[in-house]
Design a protein around this nucleic acid. Structure first.
Lengths: 150, 150
DNA sequence: AATAAATCAGAGTAATATATCCGAATATCC
DNA sequence: GGATATTCGGATATATTACTCTGATTTATT
C-alpha cells in the first residue's frame, strides 16, 4: 500500500461523501464508518483534520454530520492526500534528502521530478464528483484484511 | 517522503555500494553508516534483509563487510524497493482494497494501473551502476532532519 | 594462540501511527 | 426542559516502525 491507513480511510470517506453530495444533507460519521467498514473514532479524527483543512464542514447535534465544504467537482484526490500525508509526500526528495534540487540533486532527482509531476497530474485530473460516480461494487468497499507488509 | 526510512536507508546504501562496486572489495557497514550518516545497527538489519533477498553478500571477520551480490548493472531501484517496502507497495490497490481488479475496480483503478506501470518502469529503467555514478554532492548525502509529517 | 575487526542474532527501547474510550458541548425533537 | 443524537477534545491503549544494546561468532593478522 502506497498510502497510510489514515490517508486511505480519508480518501474512501471523501469519495463516499462525494457520491452522496447531491443529497445536500449531513452524513453522520457513524454511517460512513458502517458503510465503509472503517474504524469510527479514527475516522472522526481524520475528518476533523479534513475539516480544519477546509475540505469538509461538520455540524453537531441530532441531525448533524459532515459534508463536503465545496462542490465535489472542485475537489480532487491530490488535495486529500496533501492534507493526510503532508505536502512533502509527493513533493519531497524520493531518497529523503533535505536538500535536493537541480543544483544539488540526488541520483534520482530528474526522473523523480518528471514522475512526480505525472503523479500529481493524475491525482488532480479527475474530481471527486466524477470518481464518486463509480465507488466500486458493494463487496469491494470492505476494508482490506491485514496486509502483508507496511 | 514517499518511502519508509528503512527503504530510504537501504536505497542510499545500495547506491553507495554500486558506486564502489569497481573496487571489488568488501565495504564495512560501519563505513557506509559513517559516510552516509545512517544509523549503524539499523542499517545492519536492512542489509541483512537485502542479503536474504540475494541483493548483497556479506562476509564476517576482520576485512569483512558487504558487497553487491550481482553486478550493479543488473540491479535497479525497483528490486530494492520490492524487498524493503514489500511487493504490495506499488502493485497493490491505491485505495488499499484487498480485492481490486478489472472486474471489481476501485474508483481509481484504471488510472492507478497506468501510473503504477510508469512508476515501475521508471524505478527499473536505470541500473544502479548508472545511478551510482552520480551519488549527489557530499553535502547532499547527509541524512535529512526530522520531517514534517509521517 | 591472542587480538582485533567485522557480521549475526536476539532482546530491548523510543517514537510514531493506528485505534479506542470517555466526558463535554451542541443541536434537534418532543 | 428533557431526551437523544451527534461532533469535539483529550487521554489512553495497541501496533508498527525506527533505532539501540549486548553478546556471540567468524575471519585475518601477528
Amino acid at each position: 500500500m502506497i498510502f497510510s491507513k489514515r490517508c486511505n480511510h480519508g480518501l474512501r470517506a471523501m469519495l463516499y461523501l462525494a457520491a452522496r453530495d447531491a443529497e445536500n444533507a449531513n452524513v453522520s460519521i457513524r454511517d460512513i464508518s458502517k458503510e465503509l467498514d472503517l474504524p469510527f473514532h479514527f475516522l472522526t479524527k481524520i475528518l476533523q483534520d479534513l475539516g480544519e483543512a477546509g475540505l469538509v464542514v461538520s455540524s453537531r447535534g441530532v441531525s448533524g454530520g459532515v459534508r463536503l465544504a465545496v462542490p465535489a467537482s472542485e475537489l480532487d484526490v491530490l488535495r486529500v492526500v496533501d492534507v493526510l500525508e503532508g505536502e512533502g509526500f509527493l513533493r519531497g526528495c524520493v531518497l529523503g534528502f533535505e536538500e535536493c534540487s537541480g543544483k544539488n540533486p540526488c541520483a534520482l532527482h530528474d526522473q523523480w521530478k518528471a514522475m512526480r509531476e505525472d503523479l500529481m497530474a493524475m491525482f488532480s485530473s479527475q474530481n471527486l464528483a466524477r470518481l464518486g460516480e463509480r465507488p466500486g461494487k458493494k463487496g469491494n468497499r470492505k476494508r482490506s484484511a491485514a496486509g502483508s507488509k507496511r
